[in-house]
């Protein structure tokens, strides 16, 4: 079943992400993806996450698709102009990839090639517009296509942003531009997430709440200090700090958050960031 079908049937959907390797040894990535088989409704493949040069998400999505998994192709505007982005979208479609997550992308300075040219010819909103135009048989230059693709278009939002209003305004623009589902930045405060969901209720668009698996108290503190829009409350940091088995505790917290937020949204998006092998355990603990 496709991600779109799962959402339209009203199933509480599960997605998780895998990161392509820096190099061509794809074994571990495929192993991680294999663990998700039968457990998730879609596997996100990151597009050179944190601006670190890696194997491309399009090729990795193709590999997953060949193996009968349901990839979600993440596309950022950081490295490619509107010509390349539109072409990559067409390429994705002919390879059978229909789920596309449109993002702006991190700035180049965050990665391992800080001296690279940042492109950002389009942004997340205009990339969605481009994908929508292609579906309607025209490109951004209004030129007719020979056969048009069909996508299930996703976008992202940060429910923990402060102030939240600019995020809400942009989310609304993304819906207008063509976004059909949202995956969120990680959020560790169910009450705050519920307020966010109330604020976006009128958009009538499915939202998959983002969960980043905690590995230690230090990691939580690091995210609080450095990752925009992510806030791990002190009580959770303490729990991690005092736990003897950090791996087990991280899984327990993730599962608890999923259970607490399950009722307010349409699905969950798990970002294990290198600990993909723990995803099945999180799902088991969450009763999914």
């Amino acid at each position: 079943m496709s991600l779109e079908q799962a959402l339209s049937k009203g199933k509480f959907v599960i997605t998780a992400e895998v990161g392509p390797p820096k190099g061509v040894d794809i074994e571990e990535m495929l192993e991680d993806a294999e663990l998700m088989r039968g457990r998730v409704d879609g596997v996100n493949v990151t597009d050179q996450q944190s601006s670190v040069m890696r194997l491309g998400s399009l090729a990795a999505c193709h590999l997953l698709k060949q193996r009968g998994l349901e990839p979600i192709y993440q596309v950022t505007c950081r490295d490619r102009n509107r010509i390349a982005l539109q072409s990559d979208l067409l390429s994705a479609y002919v390879l059978g990839i229909e789920n596309v997550l449109c993002l702006t992308g991190d700035y180049v300075s965050l990665g391992d090639h800080p001296d690279a040219e940042p492109v950002f010819d389009l942004d997340s909103v205009s990339l969605l517009q481009a994908a929508k135009a292609l579906q309607q048989g025209k490109d951004l230059a209004m030129k007719e296509l020979k056969g048009s693709p069909r996508f299930f278009l996703g976008a992202v939002v940060t429910p923990g942003a402060d102030p939240l209003e600019p995020q809400l305004i942009k989310m609304e623009k993304k819906v207008k531009a063509g976004a059909q589902f949202f995956q969120t930045q990680a959020i560790y405060e169910p009450e705050r997430f519920e307020q966010f969901m109330q604020a976006v209720n009128h958009l009538k668009v499915p939202v998959l709440v983002g969960i980043i698996l905690l590995r230690s108290a230090a990691m939580a503190r690091f995210m609080n200090k450095n990752v925009a829009g992510v806030h791990v409350p002190e009580s959770l940091i303490e729990e991690m700090d005092q736990a003897e088995d950090k791996a087990k505790k991280g899984i327990e917290i993730a599962a608890r958050l999923i259970r607490d937020m399950k009722g307010t949204c349409q699905g969950v998006h798990i970002m294990a960031i290198g600990l993909e092998k723990r995803v099945p355990a999180i799902l088991d603990a969450a009763g999914l």
Binding site: Y107, F120, S124, V125, T158, A161, Q167, K170, N226
Partner: peptide, 15 residues
């Protein structure tokens, strides 16, 4: 805007 975005902030701004 460092990225020269036209439609609002990215998710990278903090405080």
């Amino acid at each position: 805007c460092t990225k020269g975005l036209l439609n609002g902030p990215c998710g990278g701004a903090k405080d």
